[in-house]
């Protein structure tokens, strides 16, 4: 019996997006990246943009995003993804152009590139994974690390007198004239995943309809960096991250 005979179309309730290949992911079990990758793949497929999408991957855990989604990619220097995306979209207006960036990449080293690309109203989407920690380099303090939260470079907890305050880049983005759609989502539950997918779809469509720039923040877990089980991470995120990084649309220029 072939695979196709076993999985008859009428029996198929779920399948992996065609754009996701079989490369083993380097992400830790429990990490939010895999879910967000899948949502992006699904949205691109549903929009029929497989051959028109160009992604820009960051420096950070998602640096290898290009290994998992079968679209064209450019890998940017740390923080510079929105600058790359600006040029790609301006030079190829018919392409679906998005960046995929973490909190260190977007809200720290790439603050200037992020704010200015958004404020110019570039017709791009920025997917912003906020897990409040530097995952790839081993769990150092991020610009979004919560007050009191312990990391490798604030082992006694983030102290505002030493480290300053966590940065709400999404609120800043919402205040910029150039942004069309700014939202904060999560992928820790099935309803949340469905909402996040809708948000990504809206952002991508806006970017193709010339409405301006779009930012989709996904409040995420980093169970390795946080040193918790995936389940405990989700709980910790709900109890600690969500009160500070409140979910929902911050701006929607219909």
């Amino acid at each position: 019996m072939t695979r196709e005979e076993i999985i008859k179309p009428e029996n198929l309730v779920y399948k992996k997006p065609t754009l996701m290949n079989d490369n083993p992911m380097h992400y830790c079990p429990g990490c939010s990246h895999g879910v967000v990758h899948k949502l992006i793949a699904e949205v691109i497929e549903e929009m029929g943009m497989e051959n028109k999408a160009v992604g820009v991957s960051p420096v950070g855990c998602a640096v290898f995003a290009y290994n998992y989604l079968d679209i064209d990619w450019e890998e940017a220097a740390h923080g510079r993804a929105p600058a790359l995306a600006t040029a790609i979209k301006r030079l190829w207006p018919s392409r679906l152009v998005f960046t995929y960036q973490g909190d260190g990449d977007l809200a720290c080293i790439g603050t200037a590139e992020t704010i200015h690309a958004l404020n110019r109203g570039e017709n791009i989407t920025i997917i912003f994974i906020n897990n409040a920690i530097y995952g790839m380099t081993g769990g150092q303090m991020a610009p979004t690390t919560l007050v009191g939260m312990k990391t490798a470079t604030c082992p006694y907890g983030r102290d505002v007198t030493i480290h300053g305050y966590p940065l709400k880049m999404t609120e800043i983005a919402a205040s910029l004239e150039g942004t069309a759609y700014v939202t904060r989502q999560s992928v820790h539950s099935v309803p949340a995943i469905r909402k996040a997918k809708k948000a990504i779809r809206k952002a991508f469509e806006n970017s193709m309809n010339g409405k301006g720039s779009n930012l989709v923040e996904i409040v995420s877990t980093c169970n390795s960096g946080w040193k918790m089980t995936p389940e405990a991470s989700n709980k910790w995120m709900e109890e600690n991250m969500f009160p500070f990084y409140q979910l929902g649309d911050l701006k929607d220029k219909e």
């Binding site: 160009v54 820009v56 450019e74 940017a76 220097a77 510079r80 600058a83 790359l84 995306a85 600006t86 040029a87 790609i88 301006r90 030079l91 190829w92 590139e113």
Partner: peptide
């Protein structure tokens, strides 16, 4: 980096 992005296309 805009040059990088554009040149990559």
């Amino acid at each position: 980096n805009m040059v990088y992005g554009g040149a990559g296309t």
